[in-house]
Design a protein around this nucleic acid. Structure first.
Lengths: 316, 316
DNA sequence: TCAAAAGTGTTATCCTTACACCCATGT
DNA sequence: ACATGGGTGTAAGGATAACACTTTTGA
């Protein structure tokens, strides 16, 4: 008699609000944070995407705009949501992650649904103000884990930008997976039913807030995808309102990518790209000189070949 | 009583051999071509990847090297493999596609397993010798399908490079999906249980050989992913032997990307990239002047930040 | 000697990076 | 007037695209 399969859908719905890149979470008192998630009903659901939109709405009162599939996780041993759904204790859970983007991080009707800052889960990913403080302790713990293994050490160095290695903002998932492997993600010990590494308590919040089941892995996948995609698809505009200032756009990109950008070069590249168009109207709410409002030229996608954004780094 | 879920794994194993980009197929007399595929056994399989490697070996006698997950297809109405597996007629099939790359398109032990040229399935994707002949008939049929709809017409123009629009080699999946939507892929009528559009017979082989269930969609996904990935990861080397000439490398890239490249600019960019290293040995089998052999410097990945290949187009 | 394929030089142009400075508003 | 953020000029250096030519082998 073969084991039952259950498909769990989880959604990373991302937005920029209140000066932070945020993700839609469901918080239940006494439990780690969760993404909106639910089982896929093979009778009712015509497509994953429709099913996903339905239960995200139900759980959060929110309907994301842009949606794309991220990855399907099927490995045994990594705790997955819904393991006991449907009365079938021993179900094998396959976890399908989705990424949704929205400009409207406001309307959240349901109780428990909140917009959490993504840096709370990955404090080491924010390089906007230089090397993040969280990395100091992580570096020590990782060097300790690497020990005399040259392979481990080189992986650590490259991923976490140690010893002059450059920071690569896209490798969020690889970094999280390395921390998991090193036992520095709380989820690792939990999945094995063991007690956590004492190093975790020591480092405290530098290791980031854990999440239910494999949700932090899905969130890391989402952030990797999003940071990469910024560069070759104009996805950032899915997170912007209809009219925005160039500073607001740059801020949004910086919050998502976690790096500071060079203002003028960002603007010049944007201009060349033809992705935006001035509206001739001004935003008076800036606190300084009023800024011109721009809109995303959706029609520009038609003619262009490399419709991404250039991310000209600002060294400090 | 809820419907059963079955997970079908399918593998696109790609290689370059005999002057063609090829894919590992399983051919059964009287049936359309198939990718190696099989059900995922939730008891036995620890991960999808292990299960995949196991049945690809079993069905083809071949073990791919590099493997990555492509996409999970779950929509009802698109025929999926294994619908009747396990005695459960009404099972809902979720199809997980994988991409595998290999340099060794030789050892195929199993009967029925063959390396098929990818252009056989997508004749319109080969622009190495200029605009493919297959596009002439397709263009007419697509314009007919678009009719007076401006939205359809603009999609067709952009994807199939009509009216001076530039060709974008990466959008293989979108092109195939458009042909499916327009009823020009044989699979479309088959999935709906209808008789095929008479235009299909008229156009003949220009529309490409169909495949079983959703395998041509998975193949299109794979080619899209591979063409895109060439540019930002050195995946092409997974399809090359340990030692190769620069011409062979360029040929491989051209076969995969389906476009001709500018020799000297390709070489200069490659040199700058530091991805390859001359071996000081010569290949005498060129038919002309012997060529120097090169190897892929795996260690170069450590230090680099943008480890892709530049694809300098050759206009003719 | 000629066909076939390998391999090299050079220039114009464009893009990226990096420098610092001026402008318009509210308090 | 000054703080705050918006917005611009320009030059050096590197990458790309485009031009054609020389070299070494086998037949």
């Amino acid at each position: 008699m073969s084991q039952r399969i259950v498909i769990g859908l989880s959604a990373v719905v991302a937005a920029v609000a209140d000066g932070e890149a945020r993700v839609l979470t469901v918080r239940t008192p006494g439990q780690p944070a969760a993404l909106p998630f639910g089982p896929f009903d093979p009778e009712a659901g015509r497509t994953f995407e429709i099913a996903l939109r339905t239960f995200v709405s139900a759980q959060t009162g929110f309907n994301p705009g842009y949606v794309e599939q991220l990855y399907t996780f099927g490995d045994k041993g990594r705790d997955a949501p819904l393991a006991a759904v449907d009365g079938a204790q021993a179900a094998r859970v396959i976890s399908v992650g989705y990424l949704g983007l929205t400009a409207r991080a406001d309307t959240v009707a349901q109780a428990g649904a909140t917009w959490s800052a993504i840096t709370g889960f990955f404090p080491w990913e924010n390089w906007r103000d230089g090397r993040p403080a969280a990395l100091a302790g992580i570096e020590a713990a990782l060097r300790n884990w690497a020990g005399a293994s040259a392979a481990r050490l080189s992986r650590v160095r490259l991923l976490f930008a140690l010893d002059e290695a450059p920071w690569n903002d896209e490798r969020v998932l690889e970094r999280y997976e390395l921390l998991y492997e090193a036992g520095l993600a709380q989820e690792a010990a939990r999945d094995r039913g063991e007690t956590p590494d004492p190093a975790i308590a020591l480092l405290g919040p530098a290791l980031g807030e854990p999440m239910i089941s494999d949700h932090r892995r899905i969130l890391a996948t989402a952030l990797s995808r999003l940071r990469g995609k910024l560069r070759y698809r104009p996805v950032i505009f899915e997170m912007m309102p209809d009219a925005f200032t160039l500073s607001a756009l740059q801020k949004a990109v910086e919050l998502v990518a976690g790096v500071p950008l060079h203002k003028q070069n960002f603007r010049r590249a944007l201009e060349r790209s033809g992705l935006v168009e001035g509206l001739g109207r001004l935003d008076q709410e800036t606190g300084g000189r009023p800024a011109e409002l721009f809109r995303f030229r959706r029609e520009s996608l038609a003619s262009r070949s490399a419709p991404g954004l250039s991310l000209p780094l600002l060294r400090d």
